[in-house]
Design a protein around this nucleic acid. Structure first.
Length: 523
DNA sequence: AAGATCGTCTTCCATATGGG
DNA sequence: CCCATATGGAAGACGATCTT
């Protein structure tokens, strides 16, 4: 199965391939631990050969090695050198041979980058790293303490609760603290936004939660949540407001160059993004306030970087993130990725949750369009001709197989293997082509569409339908239509520490629980 | 080990055909 | 009616397997 970067399985297979050809006398997955500047460090080195005094770290890749970016390689090297420092200390070595092995999973080829280093220089390097890290970690720790103090004593912005609002707040608070999953139906006009956000924030210190995600289905609801935070802030006695709040807007809304491809060669805000990011990030982190769309756009403009990706970055460092539901529930959702990566305890609030079924279905449905392929086929560059042709042929044969009756859509029991095979080859060619040619919006769209289709085709099952439709010559389409998003959403709910789904209409509860994949004991 | 054979898949070209 | 799409055939490339 082709993916542009090696998949996890390929990576593991690659590691094993290399480890198996190292012969005797080496240790794989060598455990390293140590203490540096009061920090406990641990890691697993891929290969260590004590007799040769050689430590190896394997990185799998695909295609030309030059495609791996400079900063990526620097990171690999830094990791190896940190392992080296730990190893020297652990085994009392004076020097060490360090080898970074780049393994091409496609061509089964190793490219080693070897250097020798002394224990002393490695350890000094590690100390520098650790002192940087420690300063940052202490500052984050400090921020968290301040934040928790603020949240524990958070004051409600109105003199009194509305009727039943107190009861709502108590329910929400308890749900957070006991790490529950709650479906909450509350009538309109109760002040749901504040009525849920306030107790959920207050519960964070008691529940030991790291982050709060407030997810909405519409932009107006997102705005309401931002307003609620602003209201809370103005109601506090102290001027100090150590609660980093971030508004995530869609790429389309944030983009400053919608006509250009989102690519370093095409968009001026993308070129050298990572060079200018640190300064922009520092400014955003220091501006003690709410990072709404407007504020972020201004900071981004000051540093000539893309506001959308600056917001993505700030999602790592914000206590409260307010954004669309797809930021957590989508296939490659940013917030879900962050939860897993950092093992965050996240408090998840979903506003207007009755929409989540439909939105979830949409997130796990995809449409493949024949017309797009045919349009591109005409102007496609030579190296892509054959792959695109083959896909076009696969379309024809699919149409032939399905010609039972035209016009009316037809549901397929199984996915068309021939078309999938052709797509796979085409995706592979497209990725290679786009990697070393100037960006092309049309080709990129074709690639995204195909990749998305194949991804969902991979997990095709009872929860989805495959629908073939032909609106005329050259205008066929194939849709994977998800009906039961539960199978995809379940893990998202499980990864969250506490979940609160609320809306004015959430009955019958069992219907939502089962369609969304909520745990059995959710209320 | 080189060559022969066969089947499958591409590629290229010519031609039929349906939709606007 | 015209053009883009659809399709079939021929030639060639490629790989697997069998034969000498």
């Amino acid at each position: 199965r082709y993916t542009p970067a090696p998949s996890a399985e390929e990576g593991i297979a690659g590691h094993q391939a290399i480890q198996s050809r190292r012969g005797y006398g080496y240790k794989s997955e060598h455990l390293l631990t140590g203490e540096c500047m009061g920090l406990l460090l641990s890691g697993r080195a891929d290969i260590y050969n004590p007799h040769r005094g050689r430590l190896e770290e394997i990185k799998t890749h695909r295609g030309d090695l030059s495609r791996i970016r400079e900063h990526q390689r620097a990171l690999h090297r830094a990791q190896l050198r940190a392992y080296g420092a730990l190893l020297c200390r652990q085994e009392n070595r004076k020097t060490l041979e360090l080898a970074l092995i780049y393994y091409d999973t496609g061509r089964d080829k190793e490219t080693p980058v070897v250097e020798t280093a002394s224990a002393e220089e490695l350890w000094q390097e590690l100390e520098t790293l650790c002192s940087h890290y420690k300063a940052w970690a202490e500052q984050e720790e400090h921020h968290r303490e301040q934040r928790n103090v603020l949240l524990s004593g958070l004051r409600f912005p109105f003199p009194a609760f509305r009727p039943r609002q107190r009861q709502l707040a108590e329910t929400v608070y308890k749900n957070s603290v006991k790490s529950g999953t709650l479906l909450l139906e509350a009538p309109t006009g109760l002040g749901k936004t504040l009525g849920t956000l306030f107790p959920a924030l207050m519960a964070m210190p008691a529940a030991g939660q790291d982050r709060l995600f407030y997810l909405t289905c519409r932009n107006t609801a997102r705005q309401l949540a931002m307003d609620a935070v602003a209201r809370l802030r103005s109601a506090q006695a102290a001027q100090h407001w150590p609660l980093r709040t971030l508004e995530l807007v869609s790429k389309d809304d944030a983009c400053e160059h919608p006509d250009k491809a989102c690519h370093g060669d095409s968009c001026p805000l993308a070129k050298g993004f990572f060079d200018r990011l640190p300064d922009a990030r520092a400014e955003a982190a220091q501006s003690e306030g709410t990072l709404d769309q407007h504020t972020l756009a201004k900071i981004a403009a000051g540093h000539d970087i893309c506001p959308y990706f600056l917001a993505q970055e700030m999602a790592r460092w914000s206590d409260v993130v307010i954004g669309d539901v797809n930021r957590l529930f989508d296939q490659s959702a940013l917030l879900h990725g962050l939860i897993r990566q950092n093992s965050w305890k996240a408090s998840v609030l979903v506003d207007e949750a009755h929409n989540l079924v439909d939105r979830g279905r949409g997130m796990y449905s995809v449409r493949l369009d024949q017309q797009r392929l045919l349009r591109i086929k005409k102007t496609a560059p030579k190296p892509l001709k054959s792959a695109i042709d083959r896909t076009a042929r696969a379309w024809q044969s699919l149409i032939r197989d399905c010609q039972a009756d035209t016009q009316s859509p037809e549901f397929l029991e199984t996915l068309p293997t021939q078309l999938l095979g052709a797509l796979q080859a085409m995706v592979s060619n497209l990725t290679d082509y786009l990697a070393d040619n100037p960006p092309d919006l049309a080709l990129q769209e074709l690639l995204f569409e195909s990749v998305a289709f194949m991804k969902l085709a991979d997990s095709f099952g009872d929860h989805s339908l495959c629908e073939f439709q032909r609106a005329g010559r050259g205008r066929a389409s194939l849709t994977i239509q998800n009906l039961i998003p539960a199978d995809f959403l379940r893990e998202r709910f499980e990864a969250a520490h506490s979940v609160l789904l609320f809306s004015a209409t959430l009955s019958p509860g069992v219907y939502y629980r089962d369609l969304l994949g909520l745990p059995e004991d959710s209320r």
